[in-house]
């Protein structure tokens, strides 16, 4: 009930929500394959690689929050910073593992 009231007072533009989610997922898949290149070059293995992914993803989310959302992600995402940090994190992991293993094989071994 509370949320319904909130939505009546401050209506949300669905189109913009979709656009922002799509933008963040595009950026995330691009950046995570890039991070995979770095992880493979550094020769990270098992847990270290996944920890690297999550730490660097937090860093890129921070970049998006500062440069694209102007430090106020509440205006662009309903969940604020949390949405920015967590959205499409697992989806980016696939591209990350792909380039990670590729570059580990190319560079490390």
């Amino acid at each position: 009930m509370d949320e319904e009231h909130e939505l009546l007072i401050n209506p949300v533009v669905q189109e913009s929500v979709l656009h922002n989610t799509k933008t963040i997922s595009d950026l995330r898949s691009l950046l995570s394959s890039l991070l995979g290149i770095a992880a493979g070059t550094l020769g990270l293995e098992s847990y270290a690689g996944f920890i690297f992914y999550f730490v660097m993803s937090a860093f890129t989310s921070l970049l998006m929050g500062v440069f694209l959302a102007g430090g106020k992600p509440k205006e662009y995402f309903r969940g604020g910073w949390w949405d920015l940090l967590s959205s499409d994190l697992i989806g980016g992991l696939a591209g990350y593992v792909l380039t990670w293993t590729l570059f580990l094989g190319l560079v490390g071994v």
């Binding site: 401050n10 949300v12 533009v13 656009h19 933008t23 694209l68 959302a69 205006e75 662009y76």
Partner: peptide, 10 residues
């Protein structure tokens, strides 16, 4: 890249 504001008034 750009985000669009989700609040209707903005």
């Amino acid at each position: 890249w750009e985000f669009r504001p989700i609040q209707w008034r903005k």
